[in-house]
C-alpha cells in the first residue's frame, strides 16, 4: 500500500509485469458453480443417448426433445398448473387441519398430565403405522375420493406437530415462569409472552416436518388412489399410458414445489426467531 502511494498512479500502471489479469471473481464463482451442473448434464446426455439405441429403450428413456414437447403441452393446456394447484391446496389444507389439531392436542397434553395419559400411549401406537399403510383401510371406509385423501394428508401433518408442540410447551423454564409471577402477569400474558415463545422454535420445527410429510403424503395418496386432480394422479395416469415424459416432468415439479415450500417456511422461521443467537 505505502509503496504504491509513493509512485504516481500512471507509473504503477505501466510497471505492471503480467499482462493478463487474473479472471474476475464473479467468473471464478460462476465456473465453480457450473461444476455442479456437469453431473446432471452428463446424465441427461446418457439418457438421450439411451433413447437412440432402439425402440425398446426409447420407450423408457424418452428423447429429451420429447420431454420438452410434453412440457410445452402441459403448460399451454394449463394441465400442469391445475394439477400442481390441486396438490398444493390438498397439502396446505391437510397441514392446516392436521397441524392445528396437533398443536392444540400437543399443548393440552403438555399442560394437563391427565390428557397426556389418556391419549399419549394410544397416539404413540397409531403413529407406528406408516401413513400409506392406512390407505387400504381408509379406502375401504371412505372410498378413494377427496375425503379419504384429505384425511390421510391431515394425519400426516398431525403427528409431527403433536410431538413438537408437546415438547415445546413442556420445556418452559421455571426461571422464566418465576419472572412472570414476580411481574404479576395474567394467565393470558404468561401464555403469550413466556409459554408460546418458549414453544415456538419447536412448533416451527414441527411445521417444517409436517409440511414435508403433508407434501409427501399428498403425492403418495394421489398416486395410489389415482383419482381426481393432482400431480400424483397426473403421474399415475402417465405411468399407465407409458408416458415417461410427463412422469419426469411431474417428478421435477414435485421436487421444485417441495423445495419452494421449504424455502418459504425457512424465511418465515428466520423472521419469527430473530431473537435467537445466530452463528
Amino acid at each position: 500500500m505505502s509503496l504504491i502511494a509513493e509512485f504516481p498512479p500512471n507509473f504503477v500502471h505501466a510497471d505492471r509485469i503480467d499482462d493478463h489479469d487474473p479472471p474476475p471473481a464473479w467468473l471464478v464463482a460462476l465456473v465453480k458453480r457450473a461444476r455442479g451442473l456437469l453431473l446432471p448434464v452428463l446424465l441427461a446426455g446418457l439418457w438421450h443417448w439411451a433413447s437412440t439405441i432402439d425402440a425398446s429403450t426409447a420407450y423408457a428413456f424418452v428423447p429429451l426433445d420429447q420431454i420438452g414437447d410434453r412440457l410445452l403441452l402441459l403448460l399451454s393446456s394449463g394441465e400442469l398448473a391445475v394439477n400442481a394447484g390441486s396438490s398444493l391446496g390438498r397439502a396446505l389444507t391437510g397441514l392446516a387441519l392436521g397441524g392445528l389439531s396437533g398443536i392444540v392436542l400437543g399443548s393440552l397434553m403438555a399442560g394437563f398430565p391427565m390428557v397426556e395419559r389418556l391419549f399419549g400411549p394410544l397416539l404413540q401406537a397409531f403413529r407406528q403405522v406408516p401413513l400409506l399403510g392406512w390407505l387400504p383401510l381408509v379406502g375401504l371406509w371412505l372410498g378413494s375420493g377427496e375425503g379419504a385423501k384429505q384425511l390421510l394428508v391431515a394425519v400426516a401433518a398431525f403427528h409431527p406437530l403433536l410431538l413438537n408442540s408437546y415438547e415445546g410447551f413442556a420445556q418452559a423454564e421455571k426461571k422464566h415462569l418465576e419472572v412472570g409471577r414476580v411481574l404479576m402477569l395474567s394467565r393470558w400474558r404468561t401464555f403469550r409472552f413466556i409459554l408460546l415463545p418458549t414453544a415456538l422454535p419447536s412448533i416451527l420445527t414441527g411445521i417444517g416436518q409436517a409440511l414435508a410429510f403433508a407434501w409427501i403424503s399428498t403425492i403418495g395418496v394421489e398416486l395410489l388412489f389415482g383419482t381426481g386432480a393432482g400431480l400424483g394422479s397426473l403421474m399415475h395416469t402417465a405411468q399407465m399410458a407409458g408416458d415417461m415424459g410427463v412422469v419426469v416432468l411431474c417428478v421435477v415439479a414435485i421436487g421444485l414445489m417441495g423445495y419452494g415450500l421449504n424455502l418459504i417456511l425457512s424465511l418465515v422461521r428466520a423472521r419469527l426467531l430473530r431473537w435467537r443467537v445466530t452463528g
Partner: peptide, 16 residues
C-alpha cells in the same frame, strides 16, 4: 426473555 427486545421486556413489567 430472549424473545423480546429490551424495550418489550421492560414494557411487559407494565402490563398491569
Amino acid at each position: 426473555f430472549p424473545w423480546l427486545t429490551v424495550e418489550q421486556n421492560v414494557l411487559l413489567a407494565l402490563s398491569n
